[in-house]
Design a protein around this nucleic acid. Structure first.
Length: 478
RNA sequence: GCCUCCUUAGCUCAGUUGGUUAGAGCGCCGGACUGUUAAUCCGUAGGUCCAAGGUUCAAGUCCUUGAGGGGGCGCCA
């Protein structure tokens, strides 16, 4: 058989009247004559024309939605209207049939909830093809941005012996027999007999390890899976998700914000340049979906317009105290529309407050800095006022927090005091404290939730639809 | 973990104040047609109304409990 060409390449080629082979999966077979073939390389299908008189009937019967086929023939200008070129088949091979009486994907709109129940098959649909092509290109763009800016990709451990990362509940990793674990004299499980000779967990963050990297390589980033055993049941949380955590030496919180804003804008521009067809498909999908909603609940901007809007202006940068004042004097607060009224400085901002700032007040991404120390992690640099820390959160419309970062605390005595306040014994993190002891310098970093980024860019409302096989409380199928 | 809504055919959904034999579109199956764009047209089949219990002469419809799902909240990325 001839060398295979991707459908993306065939559609991009301006030439016609050449013979080639394509292979992919049948989307529809109309009129016993026109196959819409998709091979995953692009959302656009290639139309394969078969002459029903030259192909045997039992072969044509096997060409059903979902079947894997190959077709060889001449690429010609299409005689129909819906496409520029089409392939007139001289040879068709059926690699894998898809029994139409049981194949669950019909050529019609399915609900995302139904597709989630068949996650092993949903990747075959247009919508999920677009999402996962975008997901790939976003991951690639992130690596490219860091690489081009002198960062080194650092692989931090997935199994960690530290239980003081302070970012959430952890999954235990153990090879002990759960029925008869070895016990100590006082009847507790003897973890020293476990595989690693101690209790171990799946990582909740690579940040502390990335800080080590930055103290030698200057600029590093992690990009790996992260696990949190929180019982979080929302459209923005997964038990297994991917996180990007850069760490930069000789940098303060302003450098950190510049880096985060630069990265986000770069990757958005990247997919606008490389995935416009996928974005157009998803944009159209959203428009169709919103047609059933009342006017006031529809998006103000279409998907691509929204992405371009993010690029257009600098993100708004305000302190927690400024945000607090805006919220306290806001209409919804005065009219008691907030479920959690704003009246006391120091309380954490709720989702409704973040959404007000981003969607109503500033109408663009907002970076909030200098949070009250008691609501943020121990490793954030304590300001001179003794009350606030140099943490920063980037808030996006619809999603809320997409980035959380900070300038790190470098003063040994302050760090010890903060760890004591959080109840973290210094011996747990002696290696972390060592980097303050030997050649310490100002440094900063942040964590970017990859799926939240994919969610924002694809416009998908549930995070479970932007990772191929999601894991969340009560669910680890496939 | 909390609040709230939902669960009827393979899928998406109707189903009136509780009242004969539970419907539609799409899909499937059979047929017709053959330059179609989720093709079109004709016809057939397809149901433990999520589960268990209760109220009632009578329950898809009302009540209780449970399971699964959606949305919101909290924790966060």
């Amino acid at each position: 058989m001839m060398k295979r060409t991707s459908i993306k390449a065939v559609l991009a080629n301006q030439e016609t009247d050449y013979t080639t082979t394509v292979k992919g999966w049948v989307r529809t077979f109309r009129n016993n004559q026109f196959i819409a073939l998709n091979d995953g390389s692009t959302v656009k299908p290639l139309q394969i024309v078969v002459d029903l008189n030259t192909f045997p009937e039992d072969l044509l019967k096997k060409i059903t939605p979902g079947a894997a086929i190959g077709a060889t023939g001449k690429i010609v200008p299409s005689a129909g209207r819906g496409q520029r070129v089409e392939l007139v088949a001289t040879e068709v091979v059926v690699y894998g049939e898809a029994d139409p009486s049981t194949y669950p994907l019909q050529p019609k709109r399915h609900s995302l909830e139904f597709l989630r129940s068949i996650s092993h098959l949903r990747i075959k649909t247009n919508t999920f093809g677009c999402i996962f092509r975008l997901r790939h290109n976003l991951a690639f763009a992130i690596h490219k941005y860091f690489h081009d800016n002198g960062f080194f990709y650092m692989h931090t451990p997935i199994i960690t012996g530290s239980d003081a990362e302070g970012a959430g509940e952890m999954f235990r990793v153990s090879t002990l027999d759960p029925k008869t674990p070895p016990c100590t004299e006082n009847g507790e499980v003897d973890w020293s007999k476990d595989f690693f000779g101690k209790q171990t967990n799946l990582t909740v963050s690579g940040q502390l390890e990335a800080e080590l990297g930055a103290m030698g390589l200057d600029k590093v980033y992690t990009f790996g899976p992260t696990f949190r055993a929180e019982n979080s049941n929302t459209s923005r949380h997964l038990a297994e998700f991917w996180m990007i955590e850069p760490e930069i030496a000789f940098a303060d919180i302003h450098d950190d914000m510049d880096l985060a804003e630069g990265l986000l804008k770069y990757v958005i521009q990247y997919v606008l340049d490389h995935n416009i067809e996928d974005l157009e498909f998803l944009q159209n999908r959203l428009i169709q979906e919103e047609k059933s909603l009342p006017q006031n609940q529809r998006s103000e901007m279409a998907l691509i317009e929204k992405l371009e809007f993010i690029l257009a202006e600098p993100f708004e940068r305000i302190t927690y105290t400024e945000a607090f004042d805006i919220l306290r004097n806001s209409k919804p607060n005065k009219k008691k529309r907030f479920k959690f009224p704003i009246n006391e400085w120091g309380a954490d901002l709720q989702s409704e407050h973040e959404r007000y700032l981003v969607e109503k007040h500033f109408k663009k991404p907002v970076i909030i800095t200098d949070y009250p120390a008691q609501i943020k992690a121990f490793y954030m640099y304590l300001n001179e006022d003794g009350k606030t820390v140099r943490g920063m959160d980037i808030l996006f419309p619809q999603l809320g927090e997409i980035v959380g970062g900070s300038e790190r605390e470098t003063r040994m005595e302050v760090l010890h005091q903060r760890m004591a306040e959080f109840g973290i014994p210094p011996e747990e993190l002696s290696w972390y404290l060592d980097i303050r002891k030997y050649g310490s310098c100002p440094h900063a970093g942040f964590g970017l939730g990859f799926e939240r980024l994919v969610q924002f860019i694809t416009g998908m409302s549930n995070i479970r639809d932007v990772i191929p096989l999601p894991r969340y409380p009560g669910y680890a199928e496939f």
